[in-house]
Structure formats: C-alpha cells, structure tokens
Design a protein around this nucleic acid. Sequence first.
DNA 1: ATCCTCCCCTAC
DNA 2: TAAGGTAGGGGAGGAT
Length: 866
Amino acid sequence: MSGRGRRRGRGGPGDNGWGEFGGYMEAKKSKLAAQFEQEISSDEADEAASGDRAEHIRPIFAGVCIHVDGYTEPPAHELKRLMQKYGGRYAHYYSRAEVSHTVASQLATSKLKALQPDRIVVTPRWITDSLKAGKRLNEAPYRLRVGQEAPNPPPPSCSPSKGASAAMGRPEYIGQFYANSRLHHISAWAGKARQLVADMRAAGAARFPGADRLRAMAEAERSGTAAACREQPQHQRVVMHIDMDCFFVSVALLTRPELRGKPVAVSHASTSSRQASGDAGGSGDRLRARRGADPDWEMRQYGGAVASEKASCGSLHQSWSEVASCSYAARACGVRNGMLLGRARELCPELVAVPYEFEAYEAASSQLYRLLGEFTHSLQAVSCDELFVDCGELLRETGASPAQLASLVRKEVQERTGGCTASCGLGPNLLVARLATKQAKPDGQRVLLDPAGIAELLRDLPVRELPGVGRALEARLTSLGFGTCGLLRGAQVSALGRELGPRVAQTLLDAANGRDDRPVLAERERKSISAEINYGVRFQTMADCEAFLDGLCRELQARMRAAKVRGRAMHFKAMMRRPDAPQETAKFGGHGVCNTVNKSVALPLDTDDARLLLQECMIIVRQLRLAPQDMRGLGIHMTRLVPATTGSGGSGSSGGGGRSMDISRFAKKVNPFAASGSAASSLSGATSSSMSGATSGFMSGATSGSMSVATSGSMSGATSGSMSGATSGSMPGATSGSMSGATSGSMSGVTSGSMSGATSGSMSGATSGSMSGATSGSMSGATSGSMSFSSASGTSSSNTFGGPSGATSGASGASGAKLLGRKASSNCYSNDRNKVTGKANFFANAAGPSLIEDEEGDERADSPAV
DNA sequence: ATCCTCCCCTAC
DNA sequence: TAAGGTAGGGGAGGAT
Ligand SMILES: Nc1ccn([C@H]2C[C@H](O)[C@@H](COP(=O)(O)OP(=O)(O)OP(=O)(O)O)O2)c(=O)n1
Ligand SMILES: [Mg+2]
Ligand SMILES: [Mg+2]
Ligand SMILES: [Mg+2]
C-alpha cells in the first residue's frame, strides 16, 4: 500500500537506513539479524493479511536491539514480540556488535563488570514504560549498575528530573546530550548523506530505475499531447534543488493526521506543553525562574532588536526550548524555525508542540537520498532534507521536461516517506534552483530557466533571501542602500569590494544577477572535524572538567577514525560565563551570556589520539587559567587534516608520502618532514642511527642519533642526538641534544640542549639549554637557560553575543603568550585581543551586544569587536 | 602576490 | 526545565 512496507523492506528493520551502499552491510549482517528479518517480514505479512494498518504502530524502538539475560517479567518471548512489533530487534545471543541493550531484572555484579561501561543494561520496565509513554524513554532511570539492585524508577509521566549538573558529572552525559541534540543530528545526517552519495557513486549502477520511470512518464505524456516534445537545449545546464517541507513537522504529521493544517512545532518542551496548553490561564505554564537566573536581563543581552520591539519578551518567554521546525500554518503567525518556543506561543497561542522523532527523520532522509540515487548519481548533499541534482543529462536522455522530473520526484518522495512532501526548484544553476524552491514551497515546484523570469524574481528580492546573506550582511547591505537584489545590481564591484571584500562583493553581484557557476559537487574532501558541547556544562572541579574533556576527546577520536582522517592542528574553544552574567542561566542548562576563548595548537605530527588531545586541552586550560566553575561550553576542532592511510594503531603513524610540509614554523625549519617519505610505521633497531616515521621509536646508546616523526620517541645516552617531530619525546643523558616539534618533550641531563616548537617541553639539568616556541615550558637547573615563547600557538577570546560587527577591527595577530619564565595573568575571559599585554579587560563588550531572532536561521550571534 | 592564523558569518 | 552542533567561505592583517 503506502510506501511504508516498501520502506521497511528496503532498509531492513533496525537498520537506520544509512547502511553503506553496496554489499558491505549485507555481508556484515549476522545470522541472528537475518533471522530477525525473516521474522519481521512474516510479521508484516500477518499485519497485511489481517488488515491491520501499520500506520498507528510507531517504531519507537527503531535502532534498538535487545538481548535478554536471565528471567524477566514480562518474559523474554514477550519482550521479543514487543520489540519486533515496535521496530526493534531481538538477539537470542549476546553479541557486542549487534546488541544495543541488555535487558535484565538483576545481574550478577561480576557479569555487569565484565560488560564495557558504555554497554546499556536496563530493566524490562524500560520497555514496558516506553510503550506506555508511546515513545522511547531515556534509559538512565532504568539502568542496572554495579552494586545496585533492580531500580524502581518513577512512572514515565513524571520524568526523572536530574539537574543538568547532576547529569553532567556522569560519563554518559556526552552521549546523552548528542542523542538529544537536533543540531548534532542534522549535522551527522548531512555527513551520512554525503557518504551515501559517495558510496553510490563508487558502487556505480547498471541502470537507473528512476530514469526509466521518468522516460516512461515522458513518453506517456508525449503520446497524449501531440507535439509537446520539447528538446532541451543540448548543452544547457539544468540544476534541480529539492527540499522537504517543514521536514520534522512533516514527519510528525505522519502519525498525527489530525494536526494537518494546524500550527505545529517540533521541540523538546512538547511533552510538558500538553498539560501547559491545557491550562487556559497560562499561569501554570509560567516557568519558575530558578534561583539567581535573570531571564529579562539575559534576553536583553541576546536580543537588542527583539527586546526593543517587544517590551517584555524575556519574562514572557515561558519556554526557552527551541522550535526546530514549524508548520506553514504556524509560519503564517510569524513563527520561525529556531525560535524559542515561548516566543512562538506568544505569536501563535494555538501552536501545538510535538516531540522529536529522530529515528524517523533519519529514515525519511535516507529514503530521499536513495530515491534520487535511482535517477542519477550527480547529487550534491546539502543537508538531511535537501540536495541538488545535476539533471541536464537526465532530462536529455529521458526526453522529459523539467516539470515532469519535478512532479515525478515529488510524488515518489511522498510515497517513499509515507506522506512527507518536498518542493522542487529548477534553474540554470544552484542559486536559481534554490530560490525557485523557496518560491515553490510548500508542496510545490517551480521551473525557472528563462532569463526574463529570473530577472523578474530577482528584481524585488530582499538581499536577505540570497543564500549566504544572513543578518550581519543584510544589515551592512541595507545601510549601504542595497536592500534588494535589484538595487544591488546597480552597485560597482570595486566599490562594493572595498566595503565587503572582493570575493563577497563579486559573489553578491553575481547572485543579484542570477549568475552562479559553481558546479554540482558530489564529493569533496573534508577540511575539519570537531566535537563541541555548549549545553549542560557545569563543573565543580578541575577533575570534572578533565573528565568531560576526556569524553569529548574520545568522541573526536572516534569521529576522526570513522572519517579516516588525522589532524595536525587542534583548536580548543571554551565558552566562559561572562563575569557580569548570573551563575544561573535563563535557559535550563544553557550557556547563558558568555565570552568565548579560543586557542589553537599546531601539532608537530598528525594525530587522532584522544590522550594526546586531552593532554593539549588540559595544558591550555591551566595555562589560560580557565576556571572550571565558569565553563559553559567546550569544543575541540581539528584542522590540517591528512588521510589516515596506514590506518591502525598508534597515534602518529606517519601519514604516508602525502604529508604536507607546513608543520609548525619550527619544525619546518629544523625538520623537513616531507623529505622522509617513508610511510612505514616501522620501528628501527636501537643501533640504527636514523629513524623516521616510527610510531614508537626507541633508541639508546647511539653515538649520533636522529629520530624524526616519532610518535613517541625516546633517546637515551646519545652523544649527539636530535629528535624532531616527536609527539612525545624524551631524551635523557644526551651530550648534545636537540629536539624540535615535539608535542611533549622532555630532556634531562643534557650538556647542551635545545628544544624548539614543543607544545609542552621540559628540560632539566641542562648545562646550556635553550627552549623556544614551547607552549608550556619548564626549565630547571639550567646553568644557562633561555626560554622564549612565540606564536606557535595563539590565544584569543571574544564575546559570545554581539550585534553585527561592522568593521570589526581587531589586531589579533600573533598573540602568543610571551614571557620569560612564567605567565601569571589572571584570566577573566574577556574580549582582550591583545594578550601580549596580559592586561585584564573585564567588560570588553560592555556596550550592549545583541542577539536577535532569525527567520530561517538560528538565533546565535557573534562577537563584535571592542 | 600569496600564504597563514584567527577570527566572523552562514546554513541546515 | 532542556539537549545552543558542525562545516565551510572568506576577510583582516601579518609573514614571506
Ligand atoms: N534552526 C533550525 C533549522 C532547521 N532545523 C532542522 C529542522 C528542519 O525541519 C530541518 C530542515 O531545515 P529547513 O531549513 O529545510 O526547514 P524546514 O524543512 O523545517 O522548512 P522548509 O519548508 O522551509 O524547508 O532542519 C533545526 O533543527 N533548527
Ligand atoms: Mg526543508
Ligand atoms: Mg533544508
Ligand atoms: Mg539568506
């Protein structure tokens, strides 16, 4: 019937829908899973036979695979039935790869301990309560832990409220946060979409069934309408853009048809909002301000513009939860994606809030991409709900018109997703296609290929509608008198370039004229990878902070390994409570009003090692004297990526011949890594006089030794030793030692030592020592020592919130901590861009910053300069 | 000129 | 209560 059965049949139950294209997933499936598929299929057959409509059964356990351990109530076979009925899987035998949840009433301590700490062990009530609640509940209150009897969690109606800070200390917080973060999910799904496109292209296709259907459609309609066969110009580019209509809401409506046409919003606050919206007086809905929080003040910091236009917006914000997506009926009231739910309710009192269904969005997204992959592989993933299709060739080959393609694709998207609509725009380039989609929404299509039509659309189009023009650029353009594309067309590139920079000016002018020559780019190399959490961060102690950073580093390590990349530069970011901001934030768990602190470190070697990253982070935290109690958010970014070709093992296996040469300034000078093209992570013998590319090198007793690119190198007793590019190097007892580019270097007892470019260097007992470029250096007992800091790393901080910065001045530059000996400035995380002075600058941004709500976008704003 | 680092801005 | 992530383009200003 509807696409639903088909959908499940394709992806396979429990499959999140993104399984690698081609044979990989198939091959990987265990017999148990295969058996499960059979069982599900027969279940489906049963349902179909009995006329049981599957629509009202929500797959709330999608992605879950349970293994039942020991006796339970309800018994295992009943749990198995429930899992299968609600989208989950059941494994007869425990397997780490297959099983996501172990279900047990009690478990021997020894057995619990044997399981990895990240394994989820829950009581059967997690399943039964989730079914009662109609959604998958958080496992936390149902978890079985060492030394704990079967817990007795509260009924699902009264949610187990743990304060954010209570949840924070626990190691599972990071996973829990990500599991509930919509922004994390949409980023991750965009990545999966890109990967799927790459996989499809790699696998190739014998034929394109979608193209066949399109051809059939074109022929059928051609025979009906005599000479309607219009040839596409032979070499004209046609780009189609597809975007799901209010994506999250559309998915929500699949199981809530009664809400169609109504103002609906997806948000986290939805569960409790039901009782709140039933409260006609609204007073019960009022969020009780927690002790010390100052919503009005905070709202003023965020929303200069909004606050001035709406006198009391802070206190009226009853819910600070964000609206991820809202229906078009809600948009008619002025509600927008990214808006706070409280404000949305002001604009639209009848607004119905519904909860997230992440698994379902992912499944729908996967269907969208797989469907388009049946037409062509010239796809550019934009996001989980949006992509470009290079379709000139497809149209020529099938003889179909652009409108026919759009109609067919939209119809099939709706079928495959079980009823979600998409809109399509077609144009001669990415820009016009995208603008056309916007025009067509919702549930429509627009073909915009003729120059006259394009010109007409652009004439009065506000510049803000252009992709790439957000709040800040709009403000600048408007103040220059270029509020619309039509006006912008009259601008001179040179003049505009002086205001906005040459590239922006040119792109803008092109856009205003409907020109855009970017190709549909199906694959591109990743340039950075990161993990960041700015929610729920509350530390009591440095140990809390370190544990959290440890978790983030591990997360990042996992992401790097999954993406098969390693990084050669690390960027640390901390959001610090602004000194004038109250401890308690208006938004529960939010970061509140903050200054951000950034520090980057050029690593001497590429790495994907969490331990190393953590070490760097902690050095930074201590060096900058960041108080854990004031931290509201932390992030780690890696750049200067290199492919992790040799894969495997130790941090710092040399990245093959392709390593780029620009390491740190120091390392470049002293150690031309690029010259050592050896990809081997081999370990040369102790007597070898030169060792390069070693993952872990050890050299002792060498008369003249040199070691480069070692991840962990140690050289002892060398008469003349040199080590460069070591991640962690130690060189004791060398007569004359030199070490450069070490992430963490130590050199002791050397007669004449020099160390440069070390992130963390220590040198003790040197007769004559010199250390330069060390991020954190210590030298003790040197007879003659010199230590200087330079700009191998930079630090800066800026304010989280601020109005659009006009001409942001800012001589950030080479802000290395500079000192002889030790830096001991107090740090107040201000916007001081000139750290060299070490001067405190408390309220660098005392002038009212602003953060205004965004139409389509988010409501974050960024820092102005002082 | 061109590169590099440190940001800001934008989009979903 | 609530889950404010993530990646890329590009400008400013300094180094080369
Ligand atoms: N600030 C935002 C913007 C978007 N999203 C999520 C929810 C959206 O449903 C999805 C897709 O974003 P779109 O910009 O495509 O917006 P919608 O699909 O919701 O609406 P439209 O019909 O305008 O495309 O991404 C979000 O969580 N927060
Ligand atoms: Mg959309
Ligand atoms: Mg979209
Ligand atoms: Mg825009």
